[in-house]
Design a binder for these strands. Structure first.
Lengths: 345, 345
DNA sequence: CTGAAAGCGCTAACAT
DNA sequence: ATGTTAGCGCTTTCAG
């Protein structure tokens, strides 16, 4: 029952040819190396018959390529990341690559451990949603000539390929939409972290606050939130102490979730009177009551662009390619939660 | 800039010892092999200083172990699967394993391709949520002595470790809960597929229908649904033609999502009058209006149990371990959508 | 056109 | 207590 794995050597022996010949044929170099049609066919037939599969590990060790990419996200169970992951998976498979997902919990230590881990496994490239303090680690990857593309956020001082959205603009559009629908004092709920995506969103909010002359009301939750419980408590306090705010932009779908829970449980009437916008969509936001207006990131486009950049790096590692910062446009999916009060049923 | 990777040989040369010694020390066999304290220390220090990391690929090739597990799901972007994935990830990392996730789309061809693919990479074990027709492939893995544990569904004729829930019982509890809350004619929406989990859920429904003497109304959507659009159309038709049903059990969270969309868009009043239960929770179900009663699978427990079984297989591959079918209990998370009509506001 | 052989980096049986 | 060496399975150079 315990079948020994068949190796290229077994095949060679069985067919009375050398391993070289088999290897050439298997790698489609039969023509190039001018192996006779007859031998080629014999090998191919036999290989098919015994259903031989080369040991990819050995292949990788020899060639230095693993055909594996790593996609490192904050939390693979978050809708935004898992959707992206799914798209990457498909794109990569089409090109003969597999994708390893891992969650860094937006934690530097974990991020670095993970990067080292996979680096030792000679993965061919990284797509990383970086935590705040791993700039140097990323840099060291670049120095080792390992393809890396950052997603969602980047580091100001690092010359590196990046794909994300125009956060400031997205935020501005969202807030402007609230203003257009007669909300007078939009507030902003985010995380207190120095990452480009969050800073952009905050800046967009402040810009409109200043343009439209309303007082900015910001709630920045701690970066290292201990629990959902704590998050809800903070949000509840915020709502308690700021009865006058009439609308909110949540800077991530995770916060939106917490916020909606608090509203539903403690301020049910507000749930129907507040203007609510969330960054990042979720399939269920459209079936909430009210359904939630969302700033949607163009996931397909982001994934495609990222892959494009990554494969450029993989193909011609040495070329001093210009680094590209892609800031894609978002879409505002307008739903019930931002209807002006007069329009509501 | 282009640093050559440091190998164990370089270290040996630099330190004037043999590679064996280095290897032993690195693998914590210094004591066992009675390497002198001094040499051990020298090696460890140097290794730390140059930040040497062994090439795992070579290590795997040599040892036949890769410290990689594969978790194959239907769709990594589905809440149920991505939550499970996240838990597996953590459990595995604690044991020094990494987890590769992949989505098979519940498609046999894709499943088989993926299994072959990873098998060539000598992964150490598989956790598989199998599509309907890959019984033989699974069997062949077992014959190659590769650890496999099935999750969520199994094959009647296959002796294999499996972790899941008691679907029939879960379904019965759900329907009984509807009956207890004065719903007279619960209906059942599922997928038309011969997989154990779905069959169990259906059977549970039918049991209560027969016990409680109501007419079973089942909608089984085609296995190979072309699009969400098509799914919504079928659901809409079902609601149109069965105005008399007063409650629904959706057999997967995906169907619930479609169903809620249809209800919200076409039968808004029903959304508030129907009794609704969903299999599988989602963070957002608790903030829908009405919030949705859910049959929750014990994700943590499932993941732990699965890992336990998998590691048993990994440890003592040869022992003719008895196969274990774990059917865990679910929890009914009661929310607004199943309040009896008299209790609703 | 095909084969012999080196070597990717590591482990471990065998020598010393 | 430490070193020598034979592979793991594959690719590829160099020699016929």
């Amino acid at each position: 029952m315990k079948k020994k794995r068949i190796s290229i050597k077994d095949i060679a022996k069985h067919l009375n040819v050398s391993v070289t010949t088999v290897s050439f044929v298997l790698n489609g170099k039969a023509k190039e190396k001018r192996i006779s049609e007859e031998v080629t066919k014999r090998i191919l037939d036999y290989v098919k018959k015994i259903n031989y599969k080369p040991n990819q590990l050995a292949q990788s060790l020899r060639t230095g390529e693993s055909k594996i990419l790593v996609f490192m996200v904050e939390d693979i169970s978050n809708y935004f990341f898992s959707k992206l992951a799914r798209i990457f998976e498909d794109l990569a498979y089409d090109k003969g690559y597999k994708v390893l997902f891992c969650s860094n919990e937006n934690d530097d230590k974990k991020s670095i451990e993970l990067i080292d881990l996979f680096n030792e496994r000679q993965v061919d490239g990284f797509i990383i949603i970086p935590s705040a303090g791993i700039e140097n680690k990323i840099k060291s990857l670049q120095e080792q000539n390992i393809p890396v593309v950052l997603l969602d956020r980047y580091f100001e001082d690092l010359e590196i390929d990046y794909v994300g959205i125009d956060n400031q603009k997205a935020s501005e559009q969202g807030i402007q939409h609230l203003i257009d629908n007669k909300f007078k004092s939009p507030s902003f709920v985010s995380i207190d972290v120095q990452q480009t995506q969050m800073l952009g969103r905050l800046e967009g909010y402040r810009n409109i606050a200043s343009n439209e002359n309303f007082e900015a009301k910001e709630l920045l939750l701690p970066y290292d939130l201990k629990s959902n419980e704590q998050g809800r408590a903070i949000l509840k306090e915020f709502f308690d102490q700021n009865q006058d705010i009439d609308s909110i932009l949540f800077a991530t779908n995770y916060l939106t979730q917490l916020g909606l829970e608090v509203l539903k449980n403690h301020f049910p009437e507000k749930l129907h009177n507040l203007g609510i916008i969330t960054f990042d969509d979720n399939a269920l936001f459209s079936i909430c009551t009210p359904s939630i207006t969302a700033i949607c990131q163009p996931l397909d486009q982001m994934a495609e662009k990222t892959m494009e950049l990554l494969f450029e790096l993989i193909k011609n590692k040495k070329s001093t390619s210009k680094y590209s910062h892609q800031k894609l446009d978002t879409t505002l999916e307008i739903r019930e939660s931002t209807l002006s009060l007069s329009e509501r049923s």
